[in-house]
C-alpha cells in the first residue's frame, strides 16, 4: 500500500510542477491571456459542474459514443465471423474492405453531414463506421485462429451452423474480440468528439469548440480536462474489465 502511494506521489509531481509554473507565469503576465490560468480554469470547472451543463455535455458525448460503438461492433462481429469462417467470403470482400478502411473517418464527416444533416444520427453513424474496422479485423483474426479440430468436433456432433457459431466460434474467439472492442471503445470517444468539433453541435467536443470561438479559454481547458479524464477512465475501465473476464487468455 505504501509503495502504491509513493508511486502515485511520484506520478503527481510533474503535473503539479507544470500547473504551478503555468499559474506563476500567468500571474506574472509572462503568458498570453488566451492561455488562461489554472486557478481560473478550476473556477470554470466548478461552475460548469454546478450548473449541470458539464453533465449534459458529457452525457451527450458518452451516449453517442456508446450507441455508435454498440452498433458498429455488432455489425462488425457479424461480418468478422462471416469473413473468418468462410474463405470465399474473405477473398470476395477482403480487398473492398481493405480499400474502404484506408479512408480516414474524418474525411467522411462532410459526406455524412450532407447525407444525414446535423444530429445524433450523424455522430452515431460516424462512430459506428470508425469502430467497425478494428472490430472486424480482430473478430476475423480471432475466428480464424480457432483450432480446426474444434470445429470438426462441432460438425461431428451435428450442430447446425448457428449453434456452431454460438457454442464454439464465439467463445473461442471471445478474448480476441474483446481486445478489438476495447480498441474500438477508445476510438468511439475520439470519433464522437471529433464529429462534435467539426460538425455536430452537441457534447463536450462542441463545448470545447464553442468555448474557443467565444474566447473563453478557462471553459475550454475545463472541458478539455474533463475529456482527458473521461478518456482515461473509459480506457482504465475497459482494461480492468478485460483483465477480469479474460484472465485465462493472457499471453
Amino acid at each position: 500500500m505504501n509503495a502504491r502511494a509513493a508511486k502515485a506521489g511520484r506520478a503527481a509531481v510533474f503535473p503539479l510542477l507544470l500547473l504551478g509554473g503555468w499559474d506563476g507565469l500567468a500571474r506574472a503576465h509572462a503568458l498570453p491571456d488566451s492561455l488562461s490560468r489554472p486557478t481560473t480554469i478550476v473556477a470554470a470547472l466548478v461552475s460548469t459542474v454546478a450548473d449541470g451543463s458539464l453533465w449534459a455535455m458529457a452525457g451527450q458525448t458518452l451516449i453517442a459514443a456508446a450507441a455508435g460503438w454498440a452498433l458498429g461492433s455488432l455489425l462488425a462481429i457479424g461480418a468478422g465471423i462471416a469473413i473468418g469462417t468462410t474463405p470465399v467470403v474473405r477473398s470476395i470482400v477482403g480487398p473492398a474492405l481493405e480499400l474502404m478502411r484506408s479512408v480516414p473517418p474524418v474525411a467522411l464527416i462532410p459526406v455524412a453531414l450532407l447525407a444525414l444533416g446535423l444530429g445524433p444520427k450523424l455522430e452515431i453513424l460516424m462512430v459506428a463506421f470508425a469502430v467497425f474496422w478494428p472490430v472486424v479485423l480482430f473478430t476475423a483474426a480471432g475466428v480464424r485462429s480457432i483450432d480446426a479440430r474444434l470445429l470438426e468436433v462441432a460438425r461431428a456432433l451435428r450442430f447446425g451452423a448457428a449453434q456452431r457459431i454460438l457454442h464454439f466460434v464465439l467463445p473461442a474467439a471471445a478474448a480476441t474480440i474483446a481486445v478489438g472492442l476495447r480498441v474500438a471503445a477508445g476510438l468511439a470517444l475520439v470519433v464522437a468528439v471529433t464529429t462534435e468539433i467539426i460538425a455536430n453541435p452537441s457534447g463536450l467536443g462542441y463545448g470545447i469548440a464553442f468555448a474557443s470561438t467565444a474566447l473563453r479559454p478557462d471553459l475550454m481547458f475545463a472541458d478539455l480536462f474533463v475529456l482527458a479524464l473521461l478518456g482515461f477512465g473509459v480506457n482504465a475501465l475497459l482494461v480492468a474489465a478485460q483483465r477480469r473476464l479474460f484472465a485465462w487468455a493472457r499471453r
Binding site: 474524418v106 477508445g186 470517444l189 475520439v190 464522437a192 468528439v193 471529433t194 468539433i197 467539426i198 463536450l204 467536443g205 470545447i208 469548440a209 468555448a211 474557443s212 470561438t213 475550454m220 481547458f221 478539455l224 475529456l227 482527458a228 478518456g231 482515461f232 473509459v234 480506457n235
Partner: peptide, 11 residues
C-alpha cells in the same frame, strides 16, 4: 494519451 486529439484543435 487517451485524450481525443481533435479536442486540441480548438485550443
Amino acid at each position: 494519451r487517451p485524450l481525443p486529439a481533435a479536442a486540441i484543435a480548438p485550443i
